[in-house]
Nucleic acid binder design. Structure first.
Length: 658
RNA sequence: GGGCCCGUAGCUCAGUAUGGACAGAGUGUUGGACUUCUAAUCCAAUGGUCAAGAGAUCGAAGCUCUUCGGGCCCGCCA
């Protein structure tokens, strides 16, 4: 039982009332009302005024008639084949809205017990469809910075939300272990004298990025002859087998391990790691290229600037062509993206074997990595559709990949493969873009950069970036100070664990709550705050709730009775909180279908605001009678449970104490 | 030159998908509330020609067009 059940019932009743009045039905909706306008708002009068051609000003009159008929049916138990389960009377508003009311005691009695059962909030949108979500995919030559954190948080949250919404999700992390950035660090180790061990206390990924990569790039710029050397290193890496290729493999693996430590600390979880070097060596490209040629998607350019190259035409009108194969016959990096994208959704044969990665990740979910050879081992492809989380700077190229996958998938569907399962919720290949993260002038200033009052783009090579580990460390330190201040004598390990949970939640919430279309300007002072619209605010509300339940001991364990629910329903704070609890499923569905973590993040905030208002104004343990106390405790228990699960969807934990 | 995105309170952002009832938070500033279930909280005050203009609509922060301002992208690099 949730809000949706009440809204559905209301919608049906309004529809039946309209039909009996001879009004055109359909096309209207029921949504939670703003305060002072009933409990649910229905826009049916506006829609019907439009459809019936009644013209301006008809809505209020229609609302009057609808409300009268709706209430009449309600009184007679008509329309639903019986008396209303969850609804009260409707009223017409002069604006033209039809305002509907809930039967709050019944609503509470239905929602609260349901909210404590497993599976509450499951949106059932996916119907078991498989989706591959790729995120992180940080080049393995440096440590994660705050911009990468947005990618990890968005991707991991989307994966969690889709799972909750009924999809079977496979999380992929693409490791670009064969590009020029890797050649740079290999050259740094091999020829420029950088020691393979970082200085004591420095993580290897940070050392590679700050010292080796930045150093090699600087040397290369000063000495152009190193360009050719780097090219040689890259070719050796791509061919494999040499000592240089071995070194590249060792270094990138070690960087990857460090990066994964950070990602795991952030709460991200993966199912499979894919290595670009294997895609290059697997020969997947040859098959994909043949298919592109057969389908006429790749064309050999006869003249112009791209003469002698194989190109794909621009996806949209006026868009430039993109070179796939250079005039010297070598493939560009699109030649890695296309087969990889096709592999995700089973549009090419699987050349990989799979073995467990290292010691595994926290929480016990198995991580696999691809190895060359093994021919798929009979595995199903990761998804029926693929969602790739990359920042919006890649939009142009991703659009080309999307359109090619669309054509591949259409060709397969035309060939009769793939069963009919109804309309797919997502296209075969979807680029989930987000605007990138820049640094505020103040934060850039802390790093020694004068931006003249403008936001600064991060640059690892110039040292203008804020490291993910550093942000987490700073947040954890602040949270630890606060935790110890409030809980003198608390066990040190416990305080540290809580501080860690607060730190991770804070940065995740900060990244998850904002619209993907908006660039984030990271400001150290503001982003490190633990007050206001932040994760600790939300976590604190949860800790308060848990504390009340602890103090209550066994009280209210028998559950609430009708009188208790009636008392609960009499309070505005209680109703506000109850309504939000009932909206969990609706919000999960909205977040999943829009691939929008911020919907869940805002939902968590709304829940916490409603609870804090309730907590401040209603004495739970000092309730007038046992029945009221039991109902209030049930509300608190429901809140704590739903909030903890909602926070989990954005990868934040809810500590029981703070 | 072309393409994508953004512009809402001093600052940081919700609300725009599916137009509808007084435009909401946080932060800042000012003033209140802890012998009480944890004050990482709550309450109040303050603060907005929703960048500007035009259009379609009974009705626009939201849709269309134009302009202005800002960010990003446009290599036979990855």
């Amino acid at each position: 039982m949730s809000y949706r059940a009440a809204a559905d019932e209301a919608g049906r009743r309004v529809g039946l009332a309209a039909a009996s009045l001879g009004l055109p039905g359909g096309g209207f909706g029921v949504s939670p009302a703003r305060r002072g306008f009933g409990d649910m708002a229905c826009n049916a009068p506006f829609v019907m005024a439009g459809r019936s051609g009644a013209g301006k000003g008809a809505a209020p009159g229609i609302a009057e008639r609808l409300a009268a008929r709706y209430n009449e049916d309600l009184g007679r138990g008509r329309g639903e084949g019986g008396p209303a389960a969850l609804l009260g009377e409707a009223s017409a508003h002069a604006s033209g809205y039809l305002n509907l009311s809930l039967d709050w005691p019944r609503f509470a009695a239905a929602v609260l017990p349901a909210s404590l059962r497993g599976g509450y909030g499951d949106a059932g949108l996916g119907g078991g469809r498989r989706v591959a979500v790729e995120h992180t995919s940080v080049n393995p030559n440096k440590a994660l910075h705050i911009g990468h954190v947005r990618n990890v948080v968005v991707g991991d949250s989307v994966a969690r939300i889709l799972e909750k919404a009924g999809f079977e999700v496979r999380v992929l992390n693409y490791v670009d272990d064969s590009g020029l950035q890797v050649a740079d660090i290999v050259m740094g180790f091999e020829m420029l004298g950088f020691p393979e061990e970082p200085p004591p206390g420095v993580k290897f990924d940070k050392y590679c990025g700050d010292t080796v990569y930045a150093g090699a790039a600087a040397r290369r710029e000063a000495d152009p002859s190193l360009e050719a050397e780097r090219g040689r290193v890259l070719r050796e890496i791509e061919q494999g087998g040499s000592e240089t290729a071995g070194l590249a493999g060792r270094v990138t693996c070690r960087v990857l391990a460090c990066q994964l430590e950070t990602c795991w600390r952030l709460g991200a979880r993966y199912d499979c790691l894919n290595f670009e070097s294997q895609i290059v060596r697997s020969g997947m490209w040859r098959d994909a290229f043949e298919r592109l040629k057969e389908m006429g998607l790749a064309e050999l350019e006869e003249g112009g600037g791209n003469a002698g190259c194989w190109v794909v035409r621009g996806a949209a009108a006026g868009e430039e062509d993109k070179v796939l194969v250079r005039s010297d016959g070598t493939a560009t990096y699109m030649a890695k993206d296309i087969p990889y994208a096709a592999w995700k959704i089973g549009l090419v044969g699987d050349p990989f074997g799979y073995e467990p990665y290292g010691a595994g990740q926290p929480g016990g979910r198995a991580v696999w990595q691809t190895v060359l050879g093994g021919g798929g081992g009979g595995r199903r492809p990761p998804g029926e559709s693929a969602i790739t989380v990359i920042d919006s700077r890649q939009s142009r190229l991703q659009r080309i990949v999307s359109s090619i996958m669309e054509r591949f998938a259409a060709a397969r569907a035309a060939g009769g493969e793939g069963g009919a399962r109804g309309p797919a919720p997502f296209p075969p290949y979807l680029h989930l873009a987000y605007e990138s993260v820049a640094l505020s002038p103040a934060t850039a200033g802390m790093l020694g950069l004068d931006t003249g009052g403008r936001a600064a783009q991060m640059s690892g090579r110039r040292g203008v970036y804020v490291g993910a580990d550093r942000v987490l460390d700073m947040l954890a330190e602040r949270a630890l100070r606060e935790t110890e201040k409030r809980n003198p004598g608390m066990d040190k390990d416990l305080a540290g664990r809580i501080a860690g949970q607060v730190a991770v939640a804070t940065i995740r919430y900060e990244m998850a709550r904002q619209d993907l279309d908006k660039a984030i300007t990271f400001d150290a002072a503001r982003s490190l705050s633990l007050e206001g619209d932040t994760a600790p605010y939300i976590q604190y509300a949860h800790a308060r709730a848990v504390r009340v339940l602890e103090k209550a001991g066994g009280r209210g364990a028998g559950g609430a009775d009708a009188a208790g629910f009636a008392a609960l329903a009499a309070g505005r704070r209680e109703r506000d909180l109850l309504l939000l609890i009932s909206l969990f499923e609706t919000r999960v569905a909205e977040a999943a279908s829009n691939l929008s973590p911020k919907v869940v993040a805002r939902y968590c905030r709304d829940l916490a605001v409603a609870f804090n208002g309730f907590y401040e104004h209603v004495r739970i343990l000092d309730s007038a009678d046992a029945g009221t106390a039991a109902a209030r405790l049930l509300l608190v228990r429901s809140f704590a449970s739903v909030l903890a699960e909602a926070l989990g969807l954005v990868g934040a934990e809810a500590p029981p104490r703070m």
